[in-house]
Amino acid sequence: MKKSRQILNEQELQALLQKLAAEISETEKTQGPFHLVGIHRRGVILAKRLLSLLEGPKRKLGSLDINLYRDDFAQSSTMPVLRETKIDFPVEKSRILLIDDVLFTGRTIRSALNAMMDLGRPQKVDLLVLVDRGGRELPIQADLVGLKLEVSDTENVAVRLKEIDKEEGVWLLGGNT
């Protein structure tokens, strides 16, 4: 039987987002404001929530679907549902904070960077993730991390958000009991 353990509950997740929003503001003090671009699906929701927690300069919100840029398209057995890539500000020379829920192998971020570069040449891209679970297969690191977890290969980190899931929080799934 697979076990599932809750790491963060709804309130703790909310507090973590507050902390990340504060860190974004701190980074912006020295570097100037970012536009927030979320990676589908949960990255987009997190970007929206972070934007609402931020004050001050006007930041734009964008969403990115990385399925056309995946490196495992030919091997995937089910057809991914394509979602909207919508960035209505010029990417050229902009400063972008890329946002996703969980950082694992780094392959999604690689795809996201390629997708972004096809839309223009940003001045700088930073990466924010809610959870960094280790297990990188590419040389990619996040600039802002909500929570670092040491997770074995047999386990999975699930971020659930009430906008699309029944519950809210962070869970550790699987592993050997």
């Binding site: 399925n67 056309l68 840029y69 394509l82 890539t85 390629n114 096809d118 839309l119």
Partner: peptide, 20 residues
């Protein structure tokens, strides 16, 4: 149609190409 909607946006890009 839903999948097509995603591809319409590409025609308006400066680089009209994706690696899929």
């Amino acid at each position: 149609f839903e999948t097509t909607d995603r591809f319409r946006e590409i025609a308006g890009r400066p680089i009209k190409k994706v690696p899929a």
